[in-house]
């Protein structure tokens, strides 16, 4: 195989031109999936984190089992299980519904642990001061604790979000035409690996600004601690 053959197989501009319409629909699907699963995950995580502040053991034990379970089960297995398994329980779910449920369960558990750490990083004195002025538990959470909690774990939240966006590629197993799925379609049609390379470039261009933002935040937090 000559170098030209290599270029042709992986970096053919002609193939990029042919595959682009397919890749473009894939990118749109990936963005749509991210726009669904990230808020669901953050929302689910917030719910779990708030529940974790309830000290009652009837809440604590089920919560611990829930979080441990959904963090331990591989997301791909979970997704297949939801998509293929729920119909047996009499629940027909669309592919996108299965992705939403699977990600809610899996990434919700991860976001939940991050937010819980954030809540625990806020000194108890903050809660006491707020309660001493007559704020309710919930008002204290909303106005005093959560704003500080989120700020304290913002780098971890963004970092997790990067992982979640990349993880949307597993939606291909339930035949959702997201970016990687489309790239492989294009690859099999063109007998050429260029679409895969192109998809990688698209992922990179999509996520790199977020990665930059993340490092800046992390540096700022380090500087703040000094």
């Amino acid at each position: 195989m000559t170098f030209d053959d290599f270029l042709l197989a992986f970096f053919s501009l002609e193939i990029v031109g042919q595959a682009w319409p397919i890749l473009w629909t894939g990118l749109q699907q990936t963005l749509l999936l991210s726009a669904i699963v990230v808020p669901l995950g953050v929302g689910g995580g917030m719910l779990l984190a708030l529940l974790s502040t309830v000290r009652h053991r009837l809440v604590r034990w089920p919560l611990m089992v829930w979080v441990d379970f959904f963090r331990a089960v591989p997301p791909l297995v979970l997704l297949i299980f939801v998509y293929a398994g729920l119909p047996f329980a009499g629940l027909e779910v669309s592919a996108i519904g299965a992705v939403a449920i699977g990600f809610f369960l899996n990434t919700g558990a991860y976001y939940g642990e991050i937010l819980r750490a954030g809540i625990e990083s806020v000194p108890a004195g903050q809660m006491e001061a707020a309660r001493s002025t007559g704020l309710t538990r919930w008002q204290t959470m909303r106005y005093v604790v959560l704003p500080q909690a989120v700020r304290n774990v913002l780098p971890d939240l963004i970092s997790n979000t990067l992982e979640v966006v990349k993880l949307t590629s597993i939606a291909s197993v339930v035949a959702l035409p997201e970016l990687l799925f489309q790239a492989r379609q294009a690859q099999s049609v063109t007998y050429n690996a260029t679409p895969i390379v192109a998809a990688a470039v698209v992922y990179f261009l999509l996520l790199w600004p977020v990665v930059r933002l993340l490092s800046r935040l992390e540096n700022r937090q380090l500087a703040g601690r000094r």
Partner: peptide, 28 residues
């Protein structure tokens, strides 16, 4: 019953004014 703590416990994400105004708005 107003309370003042050893470690102040001001809300770091709010200005002095915001710290004082919070309960006036949300409680009163």
């Amino acid at each position: 019953v107003g309370m003042v703590f050893q470690s102040f416990n001001l809300y770091p994400h709010m200005t002095a004014l915001g710290n004082v105004a919070l309960a006036l708005r949300k409680v009163q």
